[in-house]
Amino acid sequence: MLLDLREVHAHYGRAHILQGVTLSVAPGEVLALLGRNGAGKSTTMKAIMGLVRPSGGEVRFEGTDLAGREPHEIARAGIGYVPEERRIFTELTVAENLSVGRRPPRAGLEPWSEARIFEIFPPLAAMRARAGGRMSGGEQQMLTIGRTLMGNPRLLLLDEPSEGLAPVIVERMADAILRLKREGLTVLLSEQNLHFARIVADRAAVLEKGRIRWEGAMDALMADDAARAEFLAV
């Protein structure tokens, strides 16, 4: 397995958000982390990235324990993180945003360059010198993914990539993720949008109250009306 979470717990103050999350991501797959608002999807992502210190359990990446590592060390180890709020550097241009994410090439992966990012997200090419703050939500979403790709990650964490985007842009985002998958990238994404998850994901894991309650193939989840009603219906 590329990434293994075993019994991971996390707290915000006294709130016990993750209550023992166990989860594995295999190389080359796209795993969708599903669940209602507040189930712990974003916190799981942040716990992997070291942005939230787990209060118990173990996170292993390529077999190495990540406990106590700083976020920048985890990023350098090969995990790329795309936050839910996008967090574009609004004062910096598109090119500068991409350059902040740039890291040395990684063995066995074709290195990312500005040109290759523009290939996947063509609209960005036309706005190289535009300030990040003067872009639409969809363009910012492309930029934030591109910025993380510049770090040549083996595993990409995408936190709600379809949130707040127009349907046309959502489809384009799905195409991009499928293309990344074809090129050998492993993806863990959190989603509320089941339709989007169904297009891109091979497998699904469903969180409720900080625990994984359902795990299996994406198709199986779509066939299991009872599970969807229990864990996902609002």
Partner: peptide, 18 residues
């Protein structure tokens, strides 16, 4: 560029491996 990025959002810069 890194300094200007960190001025805006330190944590994100760290998550990008800086």
């Amino acid at each position: 560029t890194l300094v200007r990025a960190a001025t805006a959002d330190r944590e994100m810069v760290g998550a990008l491996g800086v």
